[in-house]
Each structure stands twice: as structure tokens, then as C-alpha cells.
Design a protein around this nucleic acid. Sequence first.
DNA 1: TACTTCCACCGTCAAGCGGG
DNA 2: CCCGCTTGACGGTGGAAGTA
Length: 282
Amino acid sequence: MRARFFHLKKDMSEGSGPGTADLENGNQGISMVHVSIPNQGIQVQPVIQANQQSVIQSAGNLQTIQVVRVAAVDEDLSSSDSDAKKRREILTRRPSYRKILNELSSPVSKMDDDSNSSQSQDGHDSYVQTNALQLTAHGDATPATQGLQTLTMTNASPTSASNSTGGTTIVQYAQGPDGQFYIPVGGTNVQAYQITAPGSLAQGVVMTSGSPIASPQHMSEEGSRKRELRLLKNREAARECRRKKKEYVKCLENRVAVLENQNKTLIEELKALKELYCQKDA
DNA sequence: TACTTCCACCGTCAAGCGGG
DNA sequence: CCCGCTTGACGGTGGAAGTA
């Protein structure tokens, strides 16, 4: 089995590298941590036992960050395919990063509400709030771009083959009589760009300049159009998903840094109090 | 310099999930 | 129930670093 399988969850529970110090007890069966943040203080409270789902729930000030333990699952890597299937079934699906980040940042804000950025409760996490990747298609009534469709992607990557305006990416495409997709550039001057077949896509959307009317015949099917659109959407979605995942990991790492600092401070405080107590006693 | 290894990123597929 | 979104898995690519 490839190590990449569930690697995010694994990273979270293995106690290796940055961002895992608060989860070091994972190998003792402690896989849930209570983090409560009353005003400024932070309490970390391990909770024994956890079921197999990654859940983050919040109740008032108390947030429960429950981390899936994968170590036990990974231990029997040599087991049969049915075991692998079982593991897979057990560990399928986790809440989306958007949801997790929502919960991490609550009750201050809701991710999908008005604002586009927020800070989590520890005041250190800084990540851009993301809306779900949304693509809405609607016709364009302007004569110059008759038949032009517009895909609006909120918070899509600015590097995508599209116009990006403040987190909203607009992909415009026209559908030729042959069923091809054309991406017009320059308003009235409808210079057509053809989205090529998936097989010829090395990376991203390869666009080749061409006539808005002429097209190769092999792309003329409705099915291939739909597929092309689906792939385009999924490409953007995957990009967005990876970005969110990165933010999520960063968010956790920041949280770990804060908790480590807190822990260090408390240890020093305890040490000082101990010394004071010993001096008094002597 | 050529080769290998590692890492990050990407596109695609497939499956689960939630909303309508 | 269907459709679209989300995300894990997989395979591919390119660049950086290490090695013979």
C-alpha cells in the first residue's frame, strides 16, 4: 500500500514533523484533544477513546478536535485486499476542509458568510476563507458574444486559464455549431480558442488559436463536450481542494505552535512555583 | 555530466455526501 | 433520486539535490 493513502490523517496522528506535537499521545490511544479557549487562556485536555471518524464539533467555547488514528490501521499493511477494503471503508470520507475550517474558526464567523477572511480563536491562524467552488453557467445576451456561456468560479485559482477578479474567476466559453468549446478573448473581437481533447492536455487547459467556426471533427459529440466541461470543473475543484488542504494543515500547525508555547510557559511556571515551594519548605 | 531520488504539483477518476 | 461538489488515490511531470 502506498504511504500516501490517508497520509493527511496519518501525518496528524504520527507525531512526526511540525504540527503534530499536540497529538503525540496518539500511540497511547489518545486521539482526541479538547481545546477550550476562554478569552485568552487555552486549555488542552486529552480525551481517551475515539471512534474512527474525523469529527470536529464545537459547543460554546469547547472545541473537540478528534483525530483519526491511522497507526493501528497501518500496522497491518501486509494484510489482504479485503482488509484494505475494510480500512478503506472505515476511513472513507472526512468532513471537508471548508467545514473543518468553519468549525475551527467558529463561533467568530461562518466561512461562507459575508467576509472573506478570518482569524481563528487563538489569533494566530490566518487563512483565507473559501467559498465552495461554484460554477454557474448562464447565457450572455450581448450580440457580439451570442451564445457565449459564462462559468463563474468563486475563489478559483488566479493561475487558471480564465479571468480572475478578486477571487472570482470567470471562464467564458462559446459553443460552436460543431459542438466545440471556444473561449473568446477581447470582447467584440471574438478570437476563438479551442479547448482541446483531454488526451492532448498535458497540463491545464491547452488552448489553441483557431477560427470560431472551423473545428476538428473528433470533438463534435455532445458527450465529449460534457466531459470537457466536467474535466474543467474538476480540475479547478481539485486545485481548490488542494489549496484548502494546505490551509487546513497550516492552520493546524499554527495551532500546534500556540499550544506548544502555552505548554512551555506552563512548565516554566510550574518549575518556578516548585522552587518557591521548596525554598519555603526549607 | 549523466543518472537517481525526492518532492511538489497537477489532472483525472471514483466514491461519498448534501441539497434540491 | 439525481446532480454537483468534495476529496482520496493514482499516475505523470518537472525541478532540485545528491551521487558515481
